[in-house]
Structures are given as structure tokens and as C-alpha cells.
Write a protein that binds this DNA or RNA. Structure first.
Lengths: 191, 191
DNA sequence: ATTATCTATAGATCTATAGATAATGC
DNA sequence: ATTATCTATAGATCTATAGATAATGC
């Protein structure tokens, strides 16, 4: 039952990718190691050869998810040079993002789980949030660097809060209104 | 072991209040019925005489938490007639709120759990969110009712997102910067 | 010989229920 | 007689580990 070194590395990769999706969909406590490994096509016991604990996997999975999001932002910004921040906001605040947490922002899906996790998980998140704020500040409007940074922080916070709120309410019209209102306020024509 | 009708009602009340705190601190899956009842000073088996399921308790607990927050906002606004929205924002975006999720906003602490819960839980949340948006819109600046409502939605989203983000990062300076930046942007002197 | 994965299981915990108990409320 | 709470437990699930297996990599 042994596999090649390369196959083992691919298996580890698949565990991380599977976890990144299932944790975002079900929460950290909402999916067990056994089900997670089964979804990845492996057996339960093999998990601990790849990771020392379930929480260690959370750290890698959240890191992976945030890196993926960061890459997506760069591509969106490059495609919309006239309003890079607005392009990110429209994508982030789309119905598709709201309805597919497994593929979306890890902060909005797992923020509370991250807040309860150990330092290793939080430090990985912190480094990526800092990077994402730098990216947003780089394209944000503002007379000074401080203004741009404030705009970046406000934009990121508004996007996360709108998505969390839009997912928590069952009234579709209200949910849509929240997404659309915040997206509109973040267009370059906005404030 | 039977108690008076009134005592039983108080016991139920204590279960809801205990749950409102423990769910916000630990997440819905992070605290069991047995520990919850023990914290409330009762035994595990008695739970199902008061609630049909753990999720039914989540609905009541979240409703209770949101009602408490709404009451707090009204008091804050009355005490700061010059900038009611700013007063709410400063309170919501305080270090004390960030560091005490068990006593704070149920959306920021339990948003993802609510998004995964059944219709009954989400409908209770939706009604309260609608009320809170009305309250915020009532004091928001703006030329028209639609402007006020947009301002209310933007304010609520920014507050929730800033708190979720501030709790997820381990760098205290960054966490404080997020809270302060968003709070400043929501003062009446702001935009 | 090493090691990636497997099966099997330990030990703890989870939600929910059954039936006993004992005090209230008629 | 009713009922709020209790003890005890069913049955499922959880994380983590031990030891076997079998193919790779030396």
C-alpha cells in the first residue's frame, strides 16, 4: 500500500485542498478527520502521517485558501485597471460567493474558528491579512499612503461584514440588498 | 426533585442565557449540551424537557443575544444625541467587545453557524437584523430615507467585518488599527 | 530498510431518550 | 395526578494511536 514519494506529496496536497473546502463549508468542528480523509480518497489512519493534529491542518488549509483568494484579487485588479478596488468588491460581494462558502473567503467562513485556534493558525492568517491589506492599499484612492491604507482597511472590513451578514439572513431580498449596497459604496465613483 | 412552575421558568431562562454566552464563546459545535447544563447548574437529561433539540436552543440564544445588543444600542444612542451612529460604532469596535465575544454581537461570533442552521434560527436572526437596520437608519445621516438606509447597511457591515477581522489576527497592533480605523470612518465627522 | 497507507481500536465525547424520583398543583 | 429534574444509557461519532502490510528507494 505504499506509494511513490511524489504520490504521497500529491495525497498531502489533496488533503489540504479538501480540508480548505470542507472546513469553510462545515466549520472546523463540523467535519471530522475520517470524513475529510474519505473525501480526499484516503483512509482515516493515514492522516497522522501527514499532519500532527487536526488543528495543524486547519492552519495549512486556511493559509491555502487565503493565498488562493489573494491570487484571484491580483488577476481581477489587472483586468480592471480603471477601478481595481471596485472589481474586487463586486466579485467578493457576488451571489456566487455568498452561496459557495467552500470556495470563498476563509475569514468570513472561518473567522470565529480562527479566533479560537492556536497561535500558529492565527499567525498564518495575520501574515496573509497584512499582505492583502498591502495589495488593496496599493490600488486604493487617497492622497497619502495613510489615506490609502485606511481605505484598504475599511474596504476589507465592509466586504467581510457584508458577506457574513448576507449569509446569516434567510430573506433573499435583504441578503441581496446588503451585498449590492455595500458593493455600490465601494465602487470608485462612490465616496 | 420537582421545582415550582416559576423556578422551572427561571431554569429555562438560565439555560438560554448560559447558552447565549457559551455558544458565542465556543461556537455551536464547541460546547455540548451536558457542559452547558452543568454551567447552568442543572443536569444533562433535564435539557430535553425545555427544548426539543440543541438547535432550538441556538435559535433562542441567538435571539436573546441580538435583543440584548439592540437594547444596548438604543441606550447608547439616547446618551449621544450628537453622534448616535458614532457612539454605537465606538462601543462595537472597542477592545472590550473584541476580547469578550461571549457578551457581544451574535452575528460576528456565530455568523457561520447561523448560516448553516435551519430556517427557524435564520428567520429569528433576519427579523432582528431588519429591526437593527431600521434603528440605525433612523439616526443615520442622509438626504433621503434610501440614503439613510444605505448608510445603515454600510455601517453595520463595516462593524461586523472589522470585529471578525480584529479577532482573527494575532498581531495586537494590527487588530487595534483595524478597530480604530473603521471606528474613525464611522464618526459623524467622517464621510 | 524505509515509509506511506491501511485496518482496528482505545478512550473520550456527542445528542437524545427511557424510566425513576419527588415535589407541586389540582 | 402532573411534571420538572434526575440517573443511566443507547448508539453514534470524535481525535489520536498501534501495529500490519506492501511497495518504494537505497
Amino acid at each position: 500500500m505504499k506509494v511513490t514519494r511524489e504520490q504521497a506529496a500529491q495525497n498531502r496536497e489533496r488533503i489540504v485542498e479538501t480540508a480548505a473546502r470542507l472546513f469553510r463549508e462545515n466549520g472546523f468542528d463540523g467535519i471530522g478527520v475520517a470524513d475529510l480523509m474519505k473525501t480526499a480518497g484516503l483512509t482515516h489512519g493515514g492522516f497522522y502521517g501527514h499532519f500532527p493534529s487536526k488543528e495543524a491542518l486547519l492552519g495549512e488549509a486556511v493559509g491555502r485558501a487565503l493565498d488562493g483568494a489573494g491570487g484571484g484579487w491580483q488577476a481581477l485588479m489587472a483586468a480592471h485597471p480603471g477601478d481595481p478596488l471596485g472589481a474586487v468588491a463586486r466579485s467578493y460581494l457576488s451571489g456566487a460567493h455568498r452561496d459557495n462558502p467552500g470556495l470563498g473567503c476563509a475569514i468570513s467562513a472561518l473567522g470565529a474558528d480562527i479566533a479560537r485556534a492556536g497561535p500558529a493558525v492565527q499567525e498564518g492568517v495575520t501574515a496573509r491579512v497584512a499582505d492583502q491589506l498591502d495589495v488593496l492599499a496599493g490600488v486604493a484612492p487617497g492622497a497619502t499612503a495613510a489615506d490609502k491604507r485606511r481605505k484598504a482597511i475599511g474596504t476589507y472590513a465592509a466586504m467581510i461584514g457584508a458577506l457574513v451578514l448576507a449569509r446569516a439572513v434567510s430573506d433573499r431580498a435583504l441578503s441581496d440588498e446588503i451585498l449590492e449596497t455595500v458593493a455600490a459604496s465601494l465602487q470608485s465613483a462612490g465616496k
